[in-house]
Amino acid sequence: MNITVIGSGVIGLTSAHELAKAGHRVTVIHDQPLLESVSSVAAAIWFPYHSENSEAADRLLRHSLARFEELSSIPETGIDLRYGLNIDHLPDSDRSWTKIVKDTSEAPKEDLPDGANSGVYATLPIITMTTYLGWLREQVAALGVAFVQETVTDLSQLKNEADLVVLAAGLRGGELLGDDDSVYPIRGQVVRLANTKGLTDWLCDDDYPEGVTYIIPRRDDIIVGGTDTANDWNREVEPETAVAILARAAKLVPGLENLEVLEHKVGLRPARQKIRLERVQGQAVPVIAAYGHGGAGVTLSWGTAQRVVELAVENAGS
């Protein structure tokens, strides 16, 4: 089939990769440069943050984790397996992700910050997104996928070009379908520090009393976050927020103090109560919706792409 993918973030690129591998002729339409997508702001660590908890999501998580673990053996991908600690402040914190990850272990109380209830040590994929997105786009292009930079305002624009459209447009997904107003932004602001001290262990504390806090060391830098403000469309960096992010991170990891600040970034996570990953009827062209991943777009990307290919086969047979 001739398939058009709308969106060049991690969901769009990964879906294009798997569709092209399956033998389809694929075009990716994107309205912004690759490294300006919200995916480029991600820390990124494999973790189902602000995403749904369901058997369907677990299937996506398992496939994605296995693929990232496999890709970590290729240095050019920018993926590393790193050890770290996820902290729980609430006694009923969701730990469903631990059944998918090998070799997790309970953190002793002395390793936890004041006020924490418990914690889990795990080795998870850490993805340097600028490196990874560049590598992924090269792989996609090598499979013959074409890239077109333009803005799609109506899906009917594509009815004479595509047998099928994959809608991986993040926050614009519901808008383009015209039948879904449940997508909303969760604003994320992060600080990128120089990793001159060679830190390797990650730390995440989603329920930290002073605000969500995560420290994700990558090869040459450290992503420190963050914010998780729902329905906040502000894409500008807030200096006072950056100061607060660094202050609470330094309380948890004192080694962050005095590291050089390389960059401040803001991204709007495309959230929805449930991921929309399905065939959509009633449009000018057959559509597969693939959006609403919240803060787990990277984490769910390979599983999502696998399901997109399955839905494409179902579409062809209908």
Results as ranks from 00 to 15, higher is better:
106 E>V: 11
89 H>G: 04
152 V>G: 02
93 S>H: 12
130 T>K: 10
155 L>A: 12
138 E>T: 13
105 S>Y: 03
88 D>T: 04
127 I>K: 05
109 K>V: 15
87 I>S: 00
104 T>R: 01
84 G>F: 08
100 I>E: 09
159 K>A: 14
137 R>T: 08
85 L>C: 03
157 Q>R: 15
140 V>K: 02
144 G>D: 08
137 R>L: 10
105 S>L: 02
79 I>H: 11
116 A>G: 09
84 G>Y: 07
84 G>V: 04
103 D>T: 02
107 A>K: 06
119 G>V: 03
150 E>C: 08
104 T>M: 00
137 R>E: 14
140 V>W: 02
103 D>Y: 00
78 G>S: 15
146 A>E: 10
118 S>K: 05
101 V>K: 01
141 A>G: 06
104 T>N: 00
130 T>E: 05
135 W>C: 07
100 I>Y: 13
151 T>M: 07
114 D>T: 12
93 S>P: 09
128 T>D: 15
108 P>Y: 14
78 G>R: 14
159 K>W: 03
96 S>A: 10
82 R>F: 03
139 Q>S: 09
82 R>N: 11
86 N>I: 05
159 K>H: 13
131 T>P: 09
83 Y>H: 15
149 Q>A: 04
129 M>Y: 04
154 D>Y: 03
87 I>F: 00
89 H>S: 04
150 E>K: 15
127 I>F: 04
105 S>K: 05
125 P>T: 05
115 G>S: 05
147 F>E: 09
121 Y>L: 00
91 P>M: 01
121 Y>A: 00
128 T>R: 13
143 L>Q: 15
96 S>D: 06
85 L>S: 00
121 Y>V: 00
150 E>A: 06
142 A>N: 14
141 A>C: 10
116 A>S: 13
109 K>F: 13
80 D>Y: 10
135 W>G: 05
157 Q>T: 15
129 M>R: 03
149 Q>I: 01
128 T>Q: 13
146 A>K: 12
102 K>S: 03
112 L>H: 10
131 T>Y: 09
125 P>Y: 07
108 P>R: 14
107 A>T: 10
79 I>G: 06
157 Q>E: 15
153 T>Y: 07
113 P>A: 03
139 Q>C: 12
105 S>M: 05
149 Q>L: 00
99 K>H: 14
